[in-house]
């Protein structure tokens, strides 16, 4: 059961605030989804290795050489707020 408290807790972890109405809707919808997902618990997986990669790819390695990957001005041009070559954010230290 994903009750309102759990929804608030998860919202805080995910840095998403939702209003009271949305909390109720999410609690109901997520409870239904989790109840469906709980069927995974039927399976005995004690001897199954978690599958963390697909198609057994080789490790991708490259020479450790410096190169220009992207133009910093291009990147900064998308900034919602900037000052010179910096991203501007609210003060973090009092």
């Amino acid at each position: 059961m994903v009750d309102k408290k759990v929804v608030e807790y998860v919202g805080n972890l995910a840095k998403i605030a939702i209003n009271e109405e949305e909390k109720l809707a999410f609690s109901e919808q997520l409870s239904k989804i989790i109840a469906y997902i709980d069927k995974l618990k039927e399976l005995d997986t004690a001897n199954v290795e978690p599958m963390r990669e697909v198609n057994q790819l080789e490790d991708a390695v490259r020479q450790d050489e410096a190169f220009l990957s992207k133009d910093s001005e291009d990147i900064l041009s998308n900034a919602p707020s900037r000052e010179g070559d910096f991203f501007r954010i609210p003060k973090v230290i009092d």
């Binding site: 995974l40 399976l43 997986t45 199954v48 978690p50």
Partner: peptide, 10 residues
């Protein structure tokens, strides 16, 4: 999450 990764293998 880990249970899902195991079922993924199955």
């Amino acid at each position: 999450y880990v249970q899902a990764l195991k079922v993924r293998r199955l």
